[in-house]
Amino acid sequence: MAKLHISFENGNPEQVVEFDPSQAPFHHDGEPGSILDILLGHGVELEHACGGNCACTTCHVIVTQGMAHLTENEEEEDDMLDKAPGLVSTSRLGCQAVMAEGEVKIRIPRHTINQQV
């Protein structure tokens, strides 16, 4: 079993999801086995305005532990992350970062919004 710890900058209580990576996909949005897929499949909300297609930054998460357990960023994710508010060196897009093992801790930023108007 793999473990994903989620904390929220908006003060919501922390959550832990334990899951069997071989069961992915858990939902129908984002890359199968991605942080977004795992969260939605276990009842934890994460904004995903473009439907998990790497075309917005609303699924931005900050990885605080276990980056090595996630697939590496592709150019497409980096291009999109450039536009994320509150970007840090361990930022990832929840719909693109796939977790296949181990224990990962993430923080969901308060501002995931990239509405421009």
Binding site: C50, T57, N114, Q115, Q116, V117
Partner: peptide
């Protein structure tokens, strides 16, 4: 719906 969203502008 929600939005508008996006940076492809």
């Amino acid at each position: 719906f929600t939005g508008p969203w996006g940076n492809f502008v």
